[in-house]
Design a protein around this nucleic acid. Sequence first.
DNA 1: CTGTTAGCGCCTTCAA
DNA 2: TTGAAGGCGCTAACAG
Lengths: 316, 316
Amino acid sequence: MTSPDLAAVARRAGVSAATASRVLSGRGPASTASRDAVRRAATELGYVPHPVARRLARGAGTRILFAVRDRRAGILHDPYVTRAAAAMAAAVDPDGLGVTLRRLPLAATAALETIAADRSVAAVVLAGHDRDLLEHLPTGLRGRTAAIGAGGTDVDSAAGIGALLRHLHDTGRRRIALVSGPRWLAASGAPLRAYTELTRAAGLPSRVVAGDFTAERGRAAAVTVLRRWPDTDAIATVSDATALGVLLGLAAAGIRVPQDIAVTGFDDIPLVSAYPGLSTATHPVEPIAQAAARAALGAPAPQRLFPSHPVLRATA
Amino acid sequence: MTSPDLAAVARRAGVSAATASRVLSGRGPASTASRDAVRRAATELGYVPHPVARRLARGAGTRILFAVRDRRAGILHDPYVTRAAAAMAAAVDPDGLGVTLRRLPLAATAALETIAADRSVAAVVLAGHDRDLLEHLPTGLRGRTAAIGAGGTDVDSAAGIGALLRHLHDTGRRRIALVSGPRWLAASGAPLRAYTELTRAAGLPSRVVAGDFTAERGRAAAVTVLRRWPDTDAIATVSDATALGVLLGLAAAGIRVPQDIAVTGFDDIPLVSAYPGLSTATHPVEPIAQAAARAALGAPAPQRLFPSHPVLRATA
DNA sequence: CTGTTAGCGCCTTCAA
DNA sequence: TTGAAGGCGCTAACAG
């Protein structure tokens, strides 16, 4: 009842364990004859390599570490993070690997050194990084690290948010505010640049408030916008959560959406955007996370930037 | 720069590797003297056991498999699943393990056999199971499997939903419908029983429609309820997603919430329940998932049933 | 292209 | 209580 090992396969195929290993792992040469013999023996015996033994022998780890840099301890409960983690956990299943989730503080260098020394870690997927972090990766992590977000596998947020901004402009909005992402985050750059370019090109005023992807900050941002620029007629945000907070803030102030102020989100999270009829743009988190996991494991990255499409509903 | 191995620790402590192993793994006898010597040597060298080697030697796997039984392929994108998976991924980090996510078809026996034979799997956490599945676990999985939901670690949904139903009754609702979970799911039983008991005790009519935790089915269920029992004055559901669908369905029919019909959800998902002001009950998914993961790994289960508290907002 | 020989790092009988 | 020896299952360097 115990599964056969490599030796059994080799014996049955009439070759040495080394040859069987070469054939089955696809590393190293092997004649067609022995290749066939080994393959046949393997299927006949129902041989399945032991992933743990394999990893140990190769000196490779057995898990992907999804490291999320953020100042909030609760970041690991964030829908974006949980979705990405789950997608990776499903993606690495065929490889016999697992996924571990860990938060990194903003000053993450020391933590990365620790990770580099952890022999159970096969590869690392980084999120919430800034430029500096990517450029100063520990030597031991180079070649087995991938990033989700700016500089790595990412959604084309500039295109998605750009399209929303253009829609706002096309529908007559002229005083558009943006609730952006936090400054410490590299990924905050692209949407901000898209906004800056568009407002400048269209001769619109620039009204930016920094958010942090939470609804709470969105709400506060809405208040700030109303106070600083009372004639604002649209508020674009960089996440559905932020947009939800903005909606709550506007509702509390008795402002009608979209009549008085239009609102857009970003992410198109199914349950979140459906109810308020949030106008937003898609964010294929799962494919991105899977691509990042594969890239971290050494697969050639087929795609760096995943498209984002506007989804217009009721709020803009 | 390469980390020290057990042999190095043993050498420095003046004992054999076997003794060092016994001390550091906490298995097997060791004199106080050698115990101290080994411990000191280990900390001095900054020794960290190699998780993969350890697991191989013990014949244990390196990952927890979170197996979710469901008929929908998209179940792995469900917020409940992703939250649980992420929580486990964070929880097993200290053990050097990882988490893998996999869907199981309703007829899951064969899949479980495969899992039992997978030597990379240290333990299994099961969700979406029915009674039969738990009772017919493959031998190889017994002792290293835990379940989330009925019969395992679970939220006290009967209490949470019971409290909501009582609230509905207390506020004058007398024709309360329930959109339940799917019949093939063991966890659907508790809320249904709570509903049945309450309606019977209060002499109310029983109006049950089966849902499946999706908003789409919630919407359909609302339509069904309106058609079959037009005088319904409250609709309780077993998930926020379902409740959202119900809200959308009622809105489409021009029905006012809560004036005409009150609506309750279950889960209290932050972003989801906030905007419509959904009245719901809490569901501590993360603690439950962590407890299940620990239980699967052999830790004594400290708690089987986690409390659920009603959260009253605008819809009921 | 192939087999032999050593590991990978730890755990676990077994005899002392 | 301890050490020696032999795995766990597979891979990699090295002759041949």
